[in-house]
Structures are given as C-alpha cells and as structure tokens.
Amino acid sequence: MLINDNLTVSSIYQQIAQKKAELANLDKEDLTKSFYEKSDSVNLTNSGNYDEEDYQRVLDKFENLDSKTRSHEQLHASLAHTKGAISYNYQMGPDGKLYATGGHVRLDTSIPKDEAAAIAKLYKLQKASAAPDGLSSADASIARAANLNKMLLLSKEQGVENAN
C-alpha cells in the first residue's frame, strides 16, 4: 500500500519502531542515572557511631561544591545568551538537604548572518565557555568551536580585503 511520496506502511512502521527504541534507550539512561543518584548516599543512623568532625567535614564539602557549582554555571550564563534556565544535578547531603553537585546551561550557539554580529557573538561564546576555572569537556568544546568559527570568519574577512 502506497501512502505518500513513496512511503509505504511498512517503512512508516519501521520508523515508528526505530523512534520507540530510541525513546526506550533514553528512558533506560535516565533510570540508570536516577538509580546511581539514589544509591549514592551514606547512612549514618544505622551505626549511631560517627565522628562529629567527619560529619562536619563532609557537610562542608557539600556546601563548598554547591557554591562552586552554582557560581560556575551562573558565570557561564552571565557572559552569553542562553537557551533556557540553568539546570543543576543534586545530591542529598548528610543533613538531608539537596546540594548542587553539577550542572549545565545551554548557550545560544546560533550564528547570525551578519559577519560583524557573528564575530561579536563568537567572542562572547568563547569568553562565556572558557571563563570559569575547572573547565568541563563541554566547556572546552564550545570554546574551541567558537574560536574556530571566529577564526574562519576573520580569515574570510581578511581574504576579501586582500583581494581588493
């Protein structure tokens, strides 16, 4: 049976099955992530015997990591246009509170057609992605891509000027 533009019913079912498999893989990844986040905890109530200094040391690490994580992501977001809010990963500390242990912000990496605006935006992207200490691989990747695109635009611009 022919539907439209050489699409058959079987090819449509095949595409649907492929999309379902992709969604199932995404669900499986999310389930795995949530399992590790839930099982990554310390149960201090069972032993009843813990050192107050250790408790405070662990709590201080959570608080410091939370502060650094939030500062890191907010610095990214403040230096360039974003495509949404900052997203944080949380872990429960020994005091029962949630602490940010990771995060990401989606930077707007679209490139305007105007070359001057594109170069200005690429400078901002490079600065925003490379600004904080402790760059992640995603940060470094965006910084490299922005720098490469900026260099390509500048070389194109210089090539045009040299041809005249």
Rank of each mutant, 00 (worst) to 15 (best):
Ala80Leu: 04
Ser87Pro: 00
Asp133Met: 08
Glu22Tyr: 06
Gln14Phe: 07
Asp40Ser: 07
Asn164Leu: 08
Gln91Pro: 00
Leu2Asp: 13
Asn4Trp: 11
Ala116Arg: 05
Lys28Pro: 03
Glu161Tyr: 11
Gly134Glu: 09
Asn64Trp: 05
Tyr99Pro: 02
Tyr88Pro: 02
Phe35Ile: 10
Asn164Pro: 04
Leu152Met: 02
Ser10Val: 12
Gly102Leu: 08
Asn25Trp: 14
Tyr123Leu: 10
Lys127Gly: 01
Thr109Trp: 01
Ser39Gln: 00
Val42Arg: 03
Leu2Ile: 14
Val160Tyr: 07
Lys113Trp: 03
Tyr123Gln: 12
Glu115Gln: 02
Glu73Met: 11
Ser34Gln: 07
Gly134Phe: 14
Leu26Cys: 09
Ala17Leu: 10
Ala116Lys: 06
Tyr123Glu: 14
Thr69Ala: 07
Ala117Tyr: 04
Ala80Asp: 03
Ser39Asp: 00
Glu115Trp: 10
Asp108Gln: 03
Ala77Asn: 02
Met1Ala: 13
Ala140Tyr: 07
Arg70Leu: 13
Glu29Leu: 13
Leu107Glu: 05
Ala100Gly: 08
Asn4His: 09
Phe62Met: 15
Asn4Ala: 10
Glu157Ser: 11
Val105Lys: 03
Ser129Trp: 06
Tyr90Ala: 01
Leu31Ile: 12
Ala17Val: 09
Lys33Leu: 12
Ala145Thr: 04
Ala138Trp: 10
Ile3Pro: 12
Leu75Ala: 14
Arg70Lys: 15
Thr32Cys: 06
Glu53Phe: 08
Lys20Gly: 02
Lys33Glu: 11
Asn64Cys: 09
Ala128Cys: 11
Leu122Val: 10
Ala116Pro: 00
Thr8Ile: 15
Asp60Leu: 13
Lys61His: 01
Tyr90Pro: 00
Leu122Cys: 09
Lys28Leu: 14
Gly93Phe: 11
Ile16Trp: 10
Ile86Gln: 04
Ala118Pro: 06
Leu135Val: 04
Lys97Leu: 15
Lys124His: 09
Ala17Gln: 15
Asn162Lys: 08
Asp54Phe: 13
Asn4Tyr: 12
Glu52Thr: 07
Asn46Tyr: 08
Val9Asn: 06
Leu2Gly: 13
Leu65Glu: 03
Ala17Thr: 11
Ala77Asp: 01
Ile142Gly: 00
Gln18Arg: 14
Ile111Gly: 03
Ala24Val: 11
Leu125Glu: 02
Asn6Tyr: 15
Asp5Glu: 12
Leu44Gln: 07
Ala118Thr: 04
Gly93Ile: 15
Gln56Thr: 09
Lys121Asp: 05
Ala77Tyr: 02
Asp54Val: 12
Leu2Ser: 13
Gln158Tyr: 08
Ala80Trp: 00
Ser141Val: 00
Ala17Glu: 07
Asp30Ser: 02
Thr101Asp: 01
Ala163Gly: 02
Ile12Ser: 14
Glu53Asn: 08
Ala85Asp: 05
Glu73Phe: 06
Ala85Leu: 06
Asn149Glu: 14
Ser41Gly: 00
Gly103Cys: 10
Thr69Gly: 05
Gly134Val: 00
Asp139Phe: 13
Asn46Thr: 13
Lys61Trp: 07
Ile12Asp: 10
Leu31Val: 09
Ser10Asp: 15
Ile111Arg: 01
Asn64Val: 15
Ser41Cys: 03
